[in-house]
Design a protein around this nucleic acid. Structure first.
Lengths: 217, 217
DNA sequence: GAGTCTTTATGATCCGGGTCATAAGCTGTT
DNA sequence: AACAGCTTATGACCCGGATCATAAAGACTC
């Protein structure tokens, strides 16, 4: 999972390249651009939030582990996207941990500077709200799925969601789903075996196609 | 469920009486206070968001129904709390519907006025962010539970969560859980029968107590 | 206080997806 | 080329919670 060749299938979430906060502003508010390696922990569940984070390069996964070691992925963040703001603004401990999925660069800005930046830039502040709201939308969607739908429905929903973020014309094109079976399992609360079996079944029923082992939809 | 005597057990979420936006500000930005009856639909899933809402009196439930008619409760909002902002700010259709649980009063403010209010009042804007972030925290928590924990763990988590919102000294006091078995089921993605059986089992094991049929923890 | 509706309760049955074991296919590394 | 470590695959088995049926207890209405 850690070294999944996600990026080669397509420049993931290209529209997200647009940064939540532009580089120039980040710099003028004391953010620093830190190099990170692969599989590097950015912050851990339970710790206090002290900084604003924004991916410049690479990808970051937020996740929780239950006592049996099973993982649930709370979100994956691509270049341009910010993460970890809720505990910062809501003033509560991190509910999950963050780890890099690839080497890259991450902006970090102290809380005080971040708040000042928001105060000075209404447009950025509104952009941040939009980001938070979309994240709530994602969570509501997944929650609805996990609470009452079967594996096939869950997989279709998440596949369609990511397709809509990726494709220029989601209704026409077909795209290759940039996740392994394990990643899909971690995002939908299913087990790998269930994802594997369900994908197979859906292929037989013509609900999706396989290219090698890659899922196309 | 609709006429559960929630309010008589204690003034629910008393600290929440503090309004997200104070009445005076609401009025000066063209909000109007509408009277609502019990079981009144405020907005429906799929519709476009045009207004800001804030409970003045009564309670509002946000929920989704799956095709089999099973409900999942996305949130319950008490006096002083706002709701339905994510689709308004994130610019997407309502992912769930909202219904009143009791008769009461609700502030409604047109989107344009709401945005102007935020622009003019940085403190309110930050307060809103805090509300959105706490809501994300709640959803992350429930998502983690529903994705990988058993009924007992799910119930304990949600009971503790509400207790922490209600109790002055959560570690010392015991409070009566202000929800029916059905409501707990709808919030945790379980079935009524499972909640009933699990609660019974937990009482036998001394993990909670029952007063009549009311859960005390 | 009769009647209706909601809530709690309990037993019987079923089955979808988790668990476990095992293996083959790929990918990247040295 | 060989090896390690993911990733995909498949079968066998099992079990927890959903489903279904039925009923008693409370709560609210007139």
């Amino acid at each position: 999972m850690r070294n999944s060749p996600v990026i080669q299938y397509f420049p993931i979430f290209p529209e997200k390249r647009k940064r939540v906060i532009p580089a120039s502003l980040l710099q003028s508010y004391n953010a620093r651009l830190a190099k990170v390696g692969k599989d590097q922990i950015i912050f851990e569940e339970g710790r206090k939030a002290l900084e604003y984070f924004q991916v410049e390069e690479g990808k970051v996964k937020m996740f929780v582990l239950n006592p049996e070691g099973q993982e649930f992925t709370q979100g994956i963040f691509a270049p341009g996207e910010s993460f970890g703001e809720p505990p910062l603004l809501g003033d509560f401990p991190y509910p999950s941990s963050a780890i890099t999925l690839e080497a890259g660069k991450i902006w970090r800005m102290p809380k005080a500077d971040f708040l000042q930046l928001l105060r000075d830039n209404f447009d950025i502040h509104m952009k941040l709200d939009q980001v938070l709201c979309r994240r709530l939308q994602y969570k509501s969607m997944i929650l609805t799925e996990v609470s009452s739908y079967d594996p096939e429905h869950r997989l279709l929903t998440i596949i369609k969601y990511f397709k809509s973020k990726i494709a220029k014309h989601p209704s026409k094109e077909k795209v290759i789903v940039p996740f392994t079976r394990q990643q899909l399992a971690d995002m939908t609360g299913l087990r790998v075996e269930t994802v594997i079996r369900t994908v197979k079944k859906m292929e037989k029923e013509g609900k999706l196609t396989l290219e090698g082992h890659k899922i196309k939809y």
